[in-house]
Design a protein around this nucleic acid. Structure first.
Length: 568
RNA sequence: CGGUGAGUGGCGCAGCUUGGUAGCGCACUUGUUUUGGGUACAAGGGGUCGCAGGUUCAAAUCCUGUCUCACCGACCA
């Protein structure tokens, strides 16, 4: 490709509304342009990268035995009513009407459509297992699109759905997908981790997320230093500590807490927050809708934070989690929540494992502006895991301690079970001639998000540094002052023709620009290899090669260029 | 959806307080200059100031309404 015939669209200045580096660089490098909130046009360079990622995903999916299909973006509402998600999904599901006033949705995911397809097409156990996938546009009406392509409303996703007679078979496909995903992210040249995940609203049991590690990630991931344990912090188990500390036996005493806060009190009195107890009040789970105004108090060490995903899974607690306002709590307890006494509560109490192991701790005294010191549980309370793990916690598998890093979720695999197949009556005849509901798995990859994630992980102050497999072009050909030198033009044209004939993707910068402009543009776009042709080296029949990532330069004989590039 | 802020050529911004009919940098066009890291000079094209209404002799500027966008919180590939 010649830059003179291409839409390069680079810009010097960063649009003011781009916050994260990948968004800024994608705009500056001319990869995307915003059309409206969360909606982007892919320019040629961006599309090249997107397509390369899709090709790698497709290749690995095919190798893993999945079969590609393509389903519509627009889906009839009846399918969603059948699965129950017309009600469940909420405003993120964009609902539209056609000219006959029939309801449709823009597909945020395709469980309904694929299940409807399979129930019609598949009628025998002999046709199973089956794993179908597509690479296609999804639409989710995000409350708050941000970070450019990273959380757009319209995005490209690879979604696969597998169908099985039993969970053993599902497990085999799940493992195959796990392996395929690892292969994909390895081939993409990304630093990633597979982590244990919450299956969330989609339902199901077993679930893993694939995260690209980057400081700008939106998720916290916990890793073990001593094993390959890795989990989303939402899911990482905080194991109960050994009860080693013994109470001093001194009686609890009341102290005035004029500072109004536990933190200030602890600081002033030289008490670690890890020796103090804090409380959170949440709505209790109730079968009875009419009489649902019951509350539960949760107790945590003051240096820990509540894990809402864990808490709402407890049987006595309402899901989704509803946290009581300060006023509600104070009214029920007759004193501010911060000063309520967990040792003498009328309401049900759930104590975190770590909080339960405390002795001689600080907690509320049951009246305003008063705290207890040297408090102790009268009997060791029943405890549960309701906190977020922190760096330094022991790994749940018993090996090593946890560290926490930020990750960008680029893939997610689920064992769905029969949630959709049951609701939509998707089954086949088994070997014994009986109708049997199928078991499903689903496997997603955020293809467009990977573009942004790759940039977050691969950039420097000059711009993007693409890993070779997803670079928009492999080689940038940069002739110096070609318009003034016949022999430079001839050399450049010759190299361009040779490399192109070899199947190498070359971006030939044939603009009449100053060298600095060309260098800066090619570096901004992130082309991994460049060949610079100048008078100086041409005297020796040589050109200069420069590696974008390492910055290393070396001289090459012109005749050796194509072999050198082929060897990269 | 709640909180904050912003809408002025393609991009980044000034002007608004103290109304007088729009300006700067980048980009773009033409010419000269320069030539291994975003060269310099000159000439030029392009906006009616998000939209609607109001006040006024006069509105980018004041008032009212409305739309859009971004950032911070709860959801997600």
């Amino acid at each position: 490709m010649r830059t003179s015939q291409y839409l390069l669209s680079t810009q010097k200045e960063t649009p003011s509304d781009a916050e994260v580096i990948s968004h800024q660089l994608m705009l500056r490098a001319g990869m995307i342009r915003k059309l409206a909130s969360g909606l982007y046009t892919w320019l040629p360079s961006g599309l090249r990268v997107l397509n390369k990622i899709a090709d790698i995903v497709r290749d690995e999916m095919n190798k893993a035995g999945a079969i590609e299909v393509l389903m519509p973006v627009v889906q009839p509402a009846d399918l969603w009513e059948e699965s129950g998600r017309w009600e469940e999904y909420g405003p993120e599901l964009l609902r539209i009407k056609d000219r006959h006033q029939r309801d449709f949705v823009l597909g945020p995911t395709h469980e309904e459509v694929i299940t409807a397809l399979v129930r019609n097409e598949i009628s025998s156990y002999k046709q199973l297992p089956l794993n179908l996938y597509q690479i296609q546009t999804k639409f989710r009406d995000e409350v708050r699109p941000r970070f450019g392509i990273m959380r757009g409303r319209e995005f490209t996703m690879k979604d696969a759905y597998s169908f099985h007679m039993d969970s053993d078979c599902l497990d085999k496909t799940y493992q195959a997908m796990y392996k395929a995903y690892s292969n994909i992210f390895t081939r993409l040249g990304l630093d990633f981790r597979a982590v244990i995940a919450d299956s969330g609203a989609i339902g199901g049991s077993v679930s893993h997320e694939f995260h690209v590690l980057a400081a700008s990630g939106e998720d916290d991931i916990a890793f073990s230093s001593g094993s390959d344990y890795a989990a989303n912090v939402e899911m990482a188990e905080a194991i109960a500590p050994e009860q080693t500390a013994v109470a001093s036996g001194q009686p609890a005493s009341e102290k005035a807490a004029t500072q109004q806060s536990l933190e200030a009190f602890c600081e002033e009195n030289g008490v670690s927050l890890a020796q103090a107890l804090k409380l959170v009040m949440v709505k209790a789970h109730s079968e009875d809708e009419q009489n649902s105004d019951n509350w539960v108090v949760l107790a945590l060490r003051a240096d820990h934070t509540l894990n809402e995903v864990k808490a709402e899974k407890l049987p006595g607690i309402a899901s989704p989690l509803q946290i009581a306002s300060e006023d509600t709590a104070a009214a029920l307890l007759n004193c501010p929540l911060a000063f309520a006494n967990p040792l003498a509560l009328e309401l049900p109490l759930v104590v975190d494992h770590s909080a339960a192991a405390l002795v001689d701790f600080v907690c509320g005294a049951g009246k305003a502006d008063t705290l207890l010191t040297n408090a102790n549980w009268t009997d060791k309370p029943e405890s549960a895991d309701i906190r977020n793990v922190v760096a330094g916690d022991p790994s749940p598998d018993g090996n090593g301690v946890l560290d926490i890093k930020r990750g960008i979720e680029v893939g997610h695999i689920f064992q769905l079970g029969d949630k959709y197949s049951k609701a939509m009556n998707c089954g086949v005849l088994s070997e014994s001639g009986k109708h049997q509901t199928l078991t499903m798995g689903c496997y997603g990859i955020g293809v467009s998000r990977i573009v942004a994630a790759a940039i977050e992980q691969n950039h420097d102050k000059y711009g993007i540094i693409w890993p070779d497999p997803i670079a928009p072009f492999k080689v940038a050909l940069i002739p110096m002052n070609m318009h003034k030198s016949q022999r430079i033009m001839e050399a450049a044209e010759r190299i361009y023709a040779t490399l192109t004939a070899q199947g190498v993707e070359v971006l030939f910068d044939d603009r009449k620009e100053r060298p600095g402009v060309m260098f800066n543009d090619m570096e901004l776009i992130g082309i991994p290899h460049s060949i610079v042709i100048g008078e100086r080296n041409l005297d020796n029949q040589q050109v200069e090669y420069k590696n974008r990532r390492s910055g290393e330069k070396q001289l090459l004989d012109i005749e050796a260029v194509s072999d050198f590039i082929a060897s990269l």
